[in-house]
């Protein structure tokens, strides 16, 4: 489904990603872990189409298409979704309005009829139950005045509405208390199925107790330096990132 080959990305002449390779097949949950500054969020933003990054080398294929050639909105319509680490507040735009516009844009792209108000309301209501959200979050302006937990819940709620093929979660667990974390994880888990891929980016292992990955990758200094199963996350939690960096240094010397 997603093939990242030798991806090099720079910001203002500083190389952040230095030859990243990753393949995600449908139905798989991959987790990327790594210390601060390793390039985790850069990867998420580049995949979603943020244009403040310069891609100097490599390619990204999504279902065989060149993802990097597509505008952010077209990537979303193709089925790529990014749950933001820092969801943006947009005063004056009701949450429900954004969601309906977004869903209908995606439907239009796929050649489907837009949902009418009442159909959308019904659809959103079902999804709200999963996310344990009240009506008021729908009526309020997008993320404006939301607590940290509400913002993250809202990201997963948007994901529920759009039902993407590939979901990228960028540090969705940061700033969440345990109850909010469970709701967010449940929201993700209900979407797991054989057709959908997930890329879960996190700094801490805790989230992976609830969203159990098939593969764990460790990103250090712009490269994946180690891959393994879900046990790798526990090992990292136990030992920290230091031993991998040491291992890497030892291998290089």
């Amino acid at each position: 489904m997603l093939e990242i080959k030798n991806l090099h990305v720079s910001v203002e002449d500083q190389e952040i990603l230095k030859g990243l390779n990753l393949t995600i097949n449908a139905g798989e949950v991959h987790s990327i872990m790594g210390p601060n500054g390793s390039g985790k969020s850069t990867l998420a933003q580049v995949l979603a189409g943020r244009d403040s990054y310069e891609i100097t080398e490599g390619e990204v294929l999504f279902e065989g298409k060149d993802l990097l050639e597509l505008a952010p909105e077209d990537r979303a319509c193709e089925g790529v979704f990014l749950a933001f680490q820092y969801p943006v507040e947009i005063p004056g735009v009701a949450n429900t309005y954004l969601l309906r516009e977004a869903l209908n844009s995606v439907r239009k792209y796929r050649g489907e009829e837009p949902l009418k108000h009442i159909e959308f309301a019904k659809y959103a209501k079902e999804k709200m139950k999963i996310m344990n959200m009240g009506d008021n979050l729908l009526k309020r302006a997008v993320n404006e005045g939301f607590s940290g937990g509400e913002k993250k819940k809202n990201e997963i709620f948007q994901m529920q509405i759009l039902e993407p093929k590939l979901a990228i979660l960028d540090e969705t667990d940061s700033g969440l208390d345990i109850d909010a974390l469970k709701v967010v994880a449940d929201g993700v888990n209900t979407l797991r199925n054989p057709e959908r891929g997930f890329l879960v980016i996190t700094h801490y292992q805790r989230l992976l107790d609830y969203i159990v990955p098939d593969f764990v990758h460790v990103l250090v200094d712009g490269k994946i330096v180690k891959s393994g199963g879900k046990e790798l996350a526990l090992e990292l939690e136990d030992k920290g990132y230091g031993w991998i960096e040491e291992e890497k240094t030892a291998a290089n010397s």
Binding site: P72, A76, C77, Q158
Partner: peptide, 10 residues
């Protein structure tokens, strides 16, 4: 960018 990443045109 946030709106576009949700599928809405620029």
């Amino acid at each position: 960018f946030y709106l576009r990443s949700r599928g809405i045109s620029e």
